[in-house]
């Protein structure tokens, strides 16, 4: 725990030193800053990756925005990590908005293995290094279900349910209001639960 805390403190100090050099116009420090921020940016990009876009392209777009807005960062309202997270989330949201939203998910849209996972209660197997086929199928169904939601609702459910972030963390990372997040999550979950019930009813016909 102490080691992790020390590593985080060291990382923050490195980022701040690098940021100061970039602001002084040191181009070499820009490369170093990208290397230091890459893990944080790629995790966010990977979590909200829109279809037909590679995570590396999305990360590049995030970095372009970071460097374009670097002069606007004052550091008095939020730490640099939160500022980076907000830019990354907003960039993902912009790309999700550009993506065409699926109006409705039908039973016919599901693959055979997805139908099996949806219709049958799977016993949760022992955790292995590789993802089990039903786990991958479940992720595919969830992607299809999320595609029926608005981009902001998708992001909230991904962060709350898949990444298991606390509401306070989501507020810090996105700048959204806590009650808004809770209300949107509740409505989105209800919508997805209803869709699942509808799909199962269609499958039993």
């Amino acid at each position: 725990m102490t080691n992790a805390h020390d590593a985080a403190t060291r990382h923050t100090a490195e980022v701040e030193a690098c940021l100061a050099r970039v602001r002084r116009g040191d181009d070499g420090a820009g490369n170093e800053l990208v290397e230091l921020l890459y893990p944080q940016v790629i995790r966010i990009a990977r979590a909200h990756l829109p279809r037909a876009m590679s995570e590396e392209d999305l990360a590049q777009e995030v970095f372009m925005k970071i460097f374009a807005k670097l002069d606007q960062f004052r550091g008095d309202t939020a730490p640099f990590e939160h500022w980076i997270a907000r830019i990354a989330h907003n960039t993902c949201l912009d790309f999700l908005r550009m993506q065409k939203r699926r109006p409705e998910l039908r039973y016919a849209d599901l693959e055979e293995n997805e139908v099996e996972v949806l219709m049958n209660e799977h016993s949760i197997r022992e955790r292995t290094h590789e993802a089990a086929p039903e786990e991958l199928a479940a992720r595919e169904i969830l992607e299809k279900l999320f595609a029926t939601l608005s981009p902001a609702d998708q992001m909230i459910l991904r962060m709350l349910d898949l990444q298991q972030l606390a509401v306070a963390e989501i507020c810090q990372q996105t700048g959204w209001n806590a009650s808004l997040i809770k209300v949107r999550a509740w409505r989105a979950r209800r919508k997805l639960q209803a869709t699942c019930r509808k799909l199962q009813a269609e499958g039993q016909l």
Partner: peptide, 25 residues
Amino acid sequence: DTYHRLVKLARRAEASSESSHADKA
């Protein structure tokens, strides 16, 4: 609840893929 069952399964898939991803640029 099917949605939460799917989330549970998908989370395990995410965890497996997270461990296989390198976070280095």
